[in-house]
């Protein structure tokens, strides 16, 4: 331990440990950054619309709605409603999306007819997801805590006051606000109740 060589060796190894740590740290930042950048790229409307399944069906329908064109010019894009904002939930949703890639490869909804055939199932997934999280994505922009009922329309304010008191959430009442509604007549009575679709 007292020989100069040994001391030099210890010095070197300490230096290399430092170097490894620094390089690791820098690479880590780079990978993390690249990963998140890539993640963000998949979180844009342009990315969603690069699949014709989305561009030819839901996008065309959405273009006629309030979240695409309105008085104030504020827009909600596909990921605003469909992808959670916080990191953990976003990653979970992105991992689930690998199933969507698999069906993209299979061509499960690659024609209008096939898409319509699957629409009820797809819509049910979204309704369930939104209900489970109390319509979190809607509330990213609209919060009932800040709703001024006196400024809402005659029909909106009583429904909101009663609805929120009963524990209802946005998606219970606001279905089909961005796309065409599926045919819900095939739903069972329980499902109609679950989705608040009694008419």
């Amino acid at each position: 331990m007292t020989t100069p060589t040994n001391g030099k060796k210890g010095f070197l190894s300490r230096r290399s440990v430092k170097a490894v740590l620094i390089i690791g740290f820098v690479l880590g930042i780079l990978f993390w950054g690249a990963f998140n950048t890539a993640l963000e790229l998949t979180n844009t409307e342009t990315f969603c619309l690069s699949c014709h399944e989305m561009k030819d069906n839901v996008y065309q329908e959405y273009r006629n709605t309030i979240h695409y064109s309105n008085r104030t010019g504020v827009r909600a894009t596909c990921p605003d409603c469909h992808v959670p904002k916080d990191w953990t939930h976003k990653i979970i949703r992105k991992i689930q999306a690998s199933n969507e890639l698999y069906h993209k490869a299979l061509g499960t909804i690659n024609t209008r007819e096939k898409f319509e055939g699957k629409r009820l199932e797809l819509a049910k997934h979204e309704w369930r997801r939104m209900k489970k999280v109390d319509s979190r994505e809607c509330r990213n922009c609209h919060s009932y805590d800040y709703m001024d009922y006196t400024m809402q329309s005659r029909r909106a304010s009583p429904q909101h006051i009663d609805g929120f008191n009963e524990g209802k959430t946005c998606i219970d009442c606001h279905k089909g606000i961005a796309h065409q509604m599926p045919d819900t007549s095939e739903l069972s009575k329980e499902e109609r109740e679950e989705f608040n679709l009694e008419q």
Binding site: I66, S153, R155, G176, Q180, M181, P182, D183, S185
Partner: peptide
């Protein structure tokens, strides 16, 4: 007596 924007009346559904 109210707005009906976004209210779909299609073969499948009647808002």
């Amino acid at each position: 007596p109210h707005r009906i924007r976004e209210y779909q009346i299609t073969l499948r559904n009647n808002k």
